[in-house]
Amino acid sequence: MDIKGYLLILVGTVLVNNIVLAKILGMCPFFGVSKKLETAVGMGAATTFVLTLGSGTSYLIDHYLLGTHLAYLRTISFIVVIAGIVNFTEMFVRWASPVLFRVLGIYLPLITSNCAVLGIPLLNVQGQHDFIQSLLFGFGGSVGFSLALVLFAGLRERLEGADMPVIFRGTSIAMITAGIMSLAFMGFAGMVKP
């Protein structure tokens, strides 16, 4: 696969098939951590780190350890590996950079419960990606997640001060906003001609 193909994967995962807005994965942190812009940026950075590492490792496990006849162990072994990576990352970041730990610290354990982190390795297997493609798919997917999260957090901060009917306030307007954002991102599908 050439450079063009890799670029297509990146653009495809960040914009066209955005993991949150098009594939509707990772809704929990999307609504949970999007009340403030700073926390959204922190969560996005932590997820990007773990997801890129996780999709690479999951590829290796699936390819070299499980093979075809143990494919039914895929989901459970991915869960175990991702939980392990999150724990390892937490310990390593704490040791290597206390400043980074203070920024990302509370979000790292939250990532374990982010279904996008399991979804992307499984989509990698489904798409029969090779190692580099898996890494790119994981990185692009998590950048897409961060992009959606940061945009959504910005919108929600604005909505907080807006004058709107009581009935719409809080989660209801957040849901409607997410739906409209999702529609807007669907527009990117027209960018790539098959």
């Binding site: 496990i61 350890l65 499980l66 006849h69 143990l70 039914y72 162990l73 459970i76 072994s77 175990v80 590996v81």
Partner: peptide, 9 residues
């Protein structure tokens, strides 16, 4: 094999 793989992991 499945038990071994999970144990190994």
């Amino acid at each position: 094999a499945a038990i071994l793989v999970m144990a190994l992991l």
